[in-house]
Design a protein around this nucleic acid. Structure first.
Length: 429
RNA sequence: GGAGAGGUGUCCGAGCGGUUUAAGGAGCUGGUCUUGAAAACCAGUGAUGCGAGAGCACCGUGAGUUCGAAUCUCACCCUCUCCGCCA
């Protein structure tokens, strides 16, 4: 969400940005927002006048009553009543305009960073760097759930009966591997100076509507029946919710947090649930990182954050590449975003495992996440988020890249970094 | 889940329908005094948002009553104490 004053002063710049994102249908929103703002200001101005007058008269009534001049007081009441209807109407209008303006402002995309490549869709995303060899072994790699099944590590059939499609039981060493990855990723981030946090796994509708649009909510969020509670789709929801309508002293910045949570998603619409695999499911676990920092430091943090992801995956011997989202593929709130993709020797291509985003001050403005500078200046913070690791999905990459086959037996090699979390085990067989 | 108490400015805390433009402290800033500090005294300082400004809004949140609400009514949220239940 942009600052309406900025939009008013730079309408052409905002429109150029919309064109760069190939969202031309949003162009009229700019003028609409400006005229709503002007209207709102006018209504507000007039209402303030009426309210000032009412306050003044009310005070007089008080004084008159005190002096026992009842009749004069009654006359003054009539004066107030005479303008009551207009004021009431204006107050309704103020509210309506405010709501409408906010709605429009939320649809106007954030200004993208000049470094972001221009493009229409995800097909125009640009590969930045590859890390590690894209090895394809000389034996046929089974489908990831088949690898798991080979080690008695998964039961989707029972999960189907118990919870339905889109759930799984992880079993034995594979389940342990899953936990090991989470724990390792947690400690990895703690070593980078992040504060570990376990947030609420359910949030109120107020927070939900703050962090996503109605459409997104409908497509993702599970609601608890009879209560104003939703299961989180990612810990980012409850983590960023922690800071809604807060004022943080500048000296507390940057706030760097890494949170663990299960994530619940309906996955309604576009892609749906993948039937066989565990690539897209209703429930998974995720270690996340978020940073709240000063505006001038957000790009530096952006670069640090995606680098952490690369480093983490490389430490588990998984080849990755970074992919920069082009203007057209960038969500409205984002200034710049990299996907980290892991190499899949089975499919012979990369697939998304992390998404690192710099949201500038757009999210902070929308949610009232403010900072008080040492000189007393108040401003909106910059917010960033990135996946550390989402184990079910990363297990796919992990198993495919660390699988060995000697002609008879499959084995999974455990990279050194993970061994302490697997009770010293070097091999799963 | 039940009963009770309570949520007021940076903090403590008064106010329970009309000079409250929120008392009084504490804190903070400046000063007097002092070799310096402490103490004392004097003065200043009261969140935040909107507005060019006069001003408007804001006393947990939202609605309502009223000419006028921190103060009354209703709903909700949160905190504390006790009871119940429970990993």
């Amino acid at each position: 969400m942009l600052d309406i004053k900025f939009v008013k002063e730079n309408p052409e710049l905002v429109k150029e940005n919309i064109k760069k994102k190939f969202k031309d249908s949003k162009l009229p929103l700019v003028d609409e927002a400006i005229s709503l703002y002007d209207e709102k200001k006018a209504a507000n101005s007039r209402a303030d006048e009426l309210r000032a007058n009412r306050n003044k008269l009310s005070k007089q009534i008080g004084a008159l009553m005190g002096q026992g001049k009842k009749e004069e007081a009654e006359d003054t009441k009539k004066l107030v009543n005479a303008q009551a209807a207009e004021l009431k109407e204006l107050e309704v209008k103020e509210n309506e305009l405010e709501t409408k303006l906010k709605e429009v402002m939320m649809k106007i995309p954030n200004i993208v960073d000049p470094s972001v490549p221009v493009g229409k869709s995800d097909e125009d995303n640009v590969e930045v760097t590859k890390y590690g060899e894209q090895t394809v072994p000389d034996f046929e790699i089974p489908y990831h759930t088949d690898i798991m099944a080979h080690f008695n590590g998964i039961d989707k059939e029972a999960a189907g009966r118990v919870a339905g499609e889109g759930f799984y039981y992880l079993m034995g060493d594979i389940a342990r591997l899953h936990s090991a990855v989470t724990a390792y990723a947690r400690d990895f981030m703690i070593d980078k100076g992040f504060t570990y946090c376990i947030p609420p796994f359910m949030i109120r509708s107020r927070v939900v509507t703050g962090v996503m649009s109605f459409e997104e909510m409908d497509a993702m969020m599970y609601k608890i029946e009879g209560e104003d509670l939703y299961l989180i789709g990612t810990s980012e929801h409850s983590m960023i919710g922690k800071f809604i309508d807060t004022m943080t002293p500048e000296e507390n910045l940057p706030m760097t947090l890494t949170s663990y949570s299960p994530c619940f998603r309906k996955e309604k619409g576009a892609h749906g649930i993948e039937e066989r695999g565990i690539y897209r499911i209703h429930q998974f676990e995720k270690q996340e990182m978020i940073v709240i920092c000063k505006p001038e430091e957000s790009m530096e943090w952006f670069n640090k954050m995606w680098n952490y992801s690369v480093e983490l995956f490389r430490s588990m011997d998984i080849p990755v590449r970074t992919l920069e989202c082009c203007t057209g593929d960038l969500a409205d709130l984002k200034v710049k975003s990299y996907d980290i993709e892991a190499w899949s020797p089975k499919q012979g291509k990369y697939f998304e495992v992390c998404s690192c985003s710099n949201l500038g001050d757009a999210q902070a403005r929308r949610l009232g996440i403010r900072v008080k500078g040492e000189d007393g200046n108040k401003y909106f913070a910059h917010t960033l988020n990135n996946t550390v690791v989402a184990p079910p999905r990363m297990l796919i990459a992990f198993l495919e890249n660390n699988l060995e086959f000697d002609g008879e037996k499959y084995r999974v090699r455990i990279p050194e970094a993970l061994r302490p979390y697997m009770g010293g085990k070097e091999i799963i067989e």
